[in-house]
Design a protein around this nucleic acid. Structure first.
Length: 599
DNA sequence: TTAGGGTTAG
């Protein structure tokens, strides 16, 4: 059963093998009658009696002997753990894997997991290659090799060392270790959570190539990953693929795709989400509470409370009970539209149904008050929830801090920042973004610099929003050149500028009359795969208007409509104030009438 | 080991 003859030359096992160890004092040397005594001491955990013997023999030597003597792996493991702790040492990796092989051969899987967890936690800098080499050299059971490798990957993932788990997954192919869904699914899931969707796709493809049998959960995770990065068609196709593999999509599969359309879909996304719902029903998969919650939230975020309310009614017609999440989505939707009275009525309704508002409910309401400049009400609600014994979250603080900042009450905002730290809630990047935004509005450059330094000193990294705030502030101060340097800096730091970044800087160029720079920036943005959106068009149309190039502005307007982009209030204000009031009637057939709706 | 709600930027 043990591979010693193959792996370890005989002379290593039977001779005086360990440097500094004399044969005479080796506890298991041949003819030594004390072997049963040692195993007895270990099994009875008489460590104090065992310890004196380890003055002459190194703890690792004893471990080697236990492994060679084919002692009960439980006993060896017990000694392994005690000796590591007692002598604050790490046994050689080879011994660890010989022990793992022994445990695998006895099907002691939970013991293996715990041993591997310890190995992974010890954070050794040994390469995956060396580890896998050690695994294959310390046992001759092909099956045990694979089980150890599988569990090792799982340990990496559980200990938040996903990159090592991924590396091990890649290398496992070279050693022909056969992995299973037990490690692959958690690895796929961790990669999605860490936004490493490219790596997730690699794992998925390799699973197929290596014939690792995935299950419905594997597909659900991959579909979720694809949805998170907006690859909705691919996600949709995968549902067909899984059917072809004989795996039936579940309610979770469909919910994931519906949520993908709600959150990442483009034009007509709610129509597409609804189409998935219909397909799901046609496949005899019944929607559950979560399906309805996803749709309700989707309609709310799409600005259609009316549709959300219809779905809310349909959900109840189907005999499904709305829960806290359902109400939170609706309350937040109403708050975002400034319909606070209705939001509060819904809160009353949920309480009357026996549902307890959560911190998420209160955060939505606090934010709603702040957005309508009702900072007093927001702050009263903040105090009220504290009195109820509900712990505010970082988001609660951030919402109120932002409310104070936008109200110009920077002292109060910093007071809350201080008190959140006193309560043990760490300010995050959003907290700093709110405060930095407040100081920018005041034109307090020195304060901004100090705050950015404080944030970085805390180990927090500026994100895209931080940069966008700073870019905007510089543009508003007429320093678009400096702002463009910030754009380069963020790219250098590995952040990818988004629509807001480009549109803000474009707006800065337009303010300074530099239409050419704005148009160049649009080209750069599209080269980077970001198509102009409504805000981009508004900025550029306004830029042309300011230069008196109304025909060009009209051309852009048509281009925007042809792309299916829906003009917003700002678009119509530009049309009215910068075109029509100047006697130019834009040629945008059929769309002109909408202007009256905004005026 | 898989799905849903709350904060910050144009």
């Amino acid at each position: 059963m043990y591979p010693r003859s193959r792996i370890f030359p005989a002379r290593l096992l039977h001779g005086n093998i360990f440097p500094g160890t004399k044969r005479a004092i080796s506890p298991f040397s041949s003819g030594d009658t004390s072997e049963p005594r040692f195993t007895e001491l270990i099994s009875k955990q008489h460590w104090s009696k065992l310890k004196p013997h380890l003055k002459n023999t190194s703890p690792s030597t004893l471990l080697q002997h236990l492994l060679n003597s084919m002692a009960d792996p439980d006993l060896t493991l017990r000694y392994f753990k005690w000796s590591q702790k007692e002598f604050n040492l790490s046994h050689p990796m080879e011994s660890t894997f010989r022990l793992l092989h022994s445990l695998a051969n006895h099907k002691k899987y939970s013991r293996m997991r715990s041993l591997l967890n310890g190995f992974v936690k010890s954070g050794s800098s040994i390469s995956i290659h060396s580890i896998f080499h050690a695994i294959s050299m310390s046992g001759d059971s092909f099956c045990a090799n694979s089980i150890i490798a599988d569990m090792l990957i799982l340990s990496y993932v559980y200990n938040m060392k996903t990159h090592l788990g991924f590396e091990a997954f890649k290398r496992a192919g070279d050693y022909e270790f056969r992995l299973s869904v037990l490690s692959c699914n958690p690895l796929l899931s961790a990669l999605v959570k860490e936004s490493e969707v490219g790596d997730m796709e690699y794992v998925y493809k390799e699973m197929i190539r290596r014939r690792i049998e995935g299950n419905v959960i594997s597909f659900n995770i991959v579909i979720n990953g694809l949805c998170k990065v907006g690859k909705l068609n691919r996600a949709s196709d995968l549902i067909e693929d899984m059917k072809a593999w004989g795996i039936s999509p579940t309610v979770i599969t469909y919910n994931t795709l519906i949520d993908g359309y709600c959150k990442k879909g483009r034009i007509g996304k709610m129509y597409k989400a609804d189409a998935v719902l219909k397909k799901m029903i046609a496949s005899n998969v019944r929607p559950n509470e979560i399906t309805f919650n996803i749709l309700i939230d989707g309609y709310c975020k799409d600005g259609s409370i009316l549709s959300a309310m219809k779905v809310f009614g349909e959900m109840q017609n189907q005999g499904l009970k709305p829960n806290v999440v359902t109400y939170n989505s609706l309350i937040n939707g109403l708050c975002c539209e400034g319909r606070l009275d209705e939001a509060i009525s819904l809160q009353d309704e949920m309480v009357s149904l026996g549902l307890k508002p959560s911190i998420v409910t209160y955060n939505a309401l606090i934010n709603g008050y702040c957005k309508r400049s009702m900072v007093k009400e927001a702050s009263d609600l903040f105090d009220d929830i504290a009195r109820q014994g509900i712990a505010p979250s970082a988001i609660t603080y951030n919402s109120l801090i932002d409310g104070y900042c936008k109200d110009g009450r920077m002292e109060d905002a910093f007071g809350l920042h201080k008190s959140m730290m006193e309560r043990g809630i760490s300010p995050d990047v959003s907290t700093y973004n709110c405060l930095i935004g407040g100081l920018c509005r005041e034109g307090n450059r020195k304060g901004v610099r100090k705050l950015v330094d404080e944030m970085l000193n805390k180990g927090l990294r500026a994100n895209v929003i931080t940069y966008n705030i700073l870019v905007d502030a510089l543009c508003k101060e007429g320093e678009s050149r400096k702002a463009s340097r910030l754009l380069d800096e963020m790219v250098k730091k590995g952040l990818s500028p988004n629509h807001v970044t480009f549109n803000t800087l474009m707006d800065g160029y337009i303010r300074e009359g530099n239409l050419k720079a704005a148009l160049n920036l649009r080209t750069r943005m599209e080269k980077e795969g970001k198509q102009a959106n409504v805000v981009t068009y508004n900025v550029l149309i306004s830029g042309f208007c300011k230069k008196g190039k109304l025909e060009d502005a009209n051309g852009l307007l048509n281009e925007m409509l042809e792309k299916g982009l829906i003009p917003n209030r700002t678009t119509y204000e530009i049309i009215k104030e910068q075109m029509m009031d100047k006697g130019f009637v834009p040629d945008i057939e059929g769309h002109l009438y909408s202007i009256s709706a905004y005026s």
